[in-house]
Simulated scan of single mutants.
Amino acid sequence: MSTYPLRLADHVMEEARLAAAEDNVSLNQLLSALIADGIGHRRAIMDLKKRAVRGNVEAALAILDRVPANEPDEGDELADEGK
């Protein structure tokens, strides 16, 4: 296991302490989990960007053009803009 001296703004540290207390975990556990989660999200985004480069927009739009124009099932309608 490694250690790293991390500098945080006072307000960020206070929020982290509060979150750790709310979750009933140590500050170290909270920060480790948040960092791991952030790295996972970053990897997912990077993978999606790599896949997007290989994508073919024209082919995707051609597939969507073949979808029939059916009414949505009850409950799947778009919400009204004014509400």
Rank of each mutant, 00 (worst) to 15 (best):
M1Q: 08
M1P: 07
M1H: 11
S2D: 01
S2I: 09
S2H: 08
T3G: 13
Y4E: 14
Y4Q: 10
P5N: 04
P5D: 05
P5C: 03
L6N: 05
L6D: 01
R7S: 13
L8F: 14
A9Y: 14
A9I: 02
D10M: 02
D10H: 09
D10V: 00
H11D: 13
H11F: 08
H11N: 09
V12L: 11
V12N: 03
V12A: 10
V12D: 12
M13S: 10
M13R: 14
A16M: 11
R17W: 02
R17V: 02
R17D: 10
L18Y: 15
L18I: 08
L18W: 00
A19N: 07
A19H: 09
A19G: 07
A21G: 00
A21K: 08
A21Q: 14
E22R: 14
E22S: 10
D23A: 13
N24R: 09
N24D: 12
V25Q: 00
S26A: 09
S26V: 06
L27K: 07
N28D: 12
Q29M: 08
Q29C: 10
Q29I: 08
L30S: 07
L31R: 03
L31S: 05
L31T: 00
S32Q: 12
S32E: 09
S32N: 14
S32K: 09
A33Y: 05
A33H: 06
A33I: 01
L34Q: 09
I35V: 00
A36V: 14
A36F: 04
A36I: 12
A36G: 07
A36C: 11
A36E: 15
G38V: 05
G38F: 10
G38E: 08
I39P: 00
G40F: 03
H41M: 10
R42G: 10
R42K: 14
R42H: 07
R43H: 15
R43W: 15
R43P: 00
R43G: 01
A44P: 05
M46I: 15
M46P: 01
M46K: 15
M46H: 15
M46A: 15
D47F: 02
L48M: 15
K49Y: 05
R51H: 06
A52V: 05
A52G: 05
V53Y: 05
R54P: 07
G55E: 06
G55V: 02
G55W: 01
E58I: 03
E58G: 00
E58F: 04
A59R: 14
A59F: 07
A59I: 02
A59S: 13
A60N: 07
A60Q: 08
A60F: 02
L61K: 09
A62I: 03
A62G: 07
A62V: 04
A62K: 14
A62F: 01
I63P: 00
L64Q: 09
L64S: 01
R66G: 12
R66S: 06
R66N: 08
V67I: 15
V67L: 13
P68F: 05
P68L: 04
P68D: 03
P68N: 08
A69Q: 09
E71A: 06
E71C: 03
E71W: 06
P72T: 03
P72M: 04
P72H: 12
D73H: 12
D73I: 02
E74T: 11
G75T: 08
D76F: 07
D76L: 06
E77A: 12
E77I: 01
L78H: 14
L78D: 11
L78K: 11
L78W: 08
A79R: 12
D80H: 10
E81F: 13
G82M: 02
K83T: 04
K83I: 06
K83R: 09
